[in-house]
Simulated scan of single mutants.
Amino acid sequence: MTLRELPRASALVVIDMQQGFTDPSWGEPADLDGCRAHVNDLVAAFTNAGLPIVIVRHDSDKPSSPLRRDAPGNAFFDDIAAVDPAVLITKSVNSAFLGDPDLDDWLRSRGIDTLVVCGIQTNMCVETTARMGGNLGYRVVVPLDATTTFPLAGAGRAADAETLITATAINLAGGGFAEVVTTAEVAGAL
């Protein structure tokens, strides 16, 4: 599917672009540098189009997390820290819709009905936010190359980062939650 046009009622939602994700405890990310470059391209495109940018920060409640509020890893990467967002959402769970201030209220009060969701982690906070956005009736677009994640194990199984990114693409597009595209397609549709 090719993304043809994004309406003026669109917002960019940048999720958890935080320094704590460089901590080795996460494992090897799938092209973190590429993700960061694509997120920066999206920020520039939305800024140039005069469309709002929502920045989301994960404030972990887990004492050992590099993303906890009092840890250096809670800080944004410098390029994202330099962005002047329309709103900053803080959360301690996967979905940006369960943060503070209330993202759904903020979007609806501004007539925004289309979300471009990017950031870290593809299969966690990005996917959860995209699914909830779809369930709440938003048009959700996920430029997959502007996301990244890490290997994960559980239930006696394991998957590398690329496999998890592919699974998210299938979940979102196949499940009807979001359009899965590229950063170039989003920039071309603005």
Score class of each variant (00 low, 15 high):
1 M>Q: 05
6 L>C: 08
6 L>M: 08
10 S>W: 04
11 A>L: 08
14 V>K: 01
20 G>A: 07
23 D>N: 11
25 S>W: 15
26 W>P: 08
27 G>T: 15
30 A>W: 05
31 D>R: 09
35 C>E: 05
35 C>N: 03
38 H>N: 13
42 L>A: 06
43 V>H: 00
43 V>P: 04
44 A>F: 03
44 A>H: 09
45 A>H: 05
49 A>G: 10
54 V>D: 01
56 V>H: 01
56 V>I: 14
60 S>Q: 11
63 P>K: 11
63 P>T: 15
65 S>A: 04
75 A>S: 13
78 D>W: 09
86 A>Y: 04
89 I>L: 05
90 T>G: 04
97 F>S: 02
98 L>Y: 00
99 G>R: 02
100 D>F: 07
102 D>A: 00
111 G>F: 10
114 T>H: 02
115 L>Q: 07
116 V>E: 03
117 V>E: 00
118 C>F: 03
120 I>S: 00
126 V>D: 01
128 T>Q: 09
131 R>K: 12
131 R>W: 07
133 G>Y: 04
134 G>D: 10
134 G>P: 13
137 G>R: 06
146 A>R: 02
150 F>Y: 00
153 A>P: 06
153 A>Q: 09
157 R>G: 04
158 A>T: 13
160 D>I: 15
160 D>W: 12
161 A>I: 14
165 I>Y: 05
170 I>W: 10
175 G>D: 05
177 F>D: 00
183 T>I: 12
190 L>M: 12
190 L>C: 06
190 L>S: 02
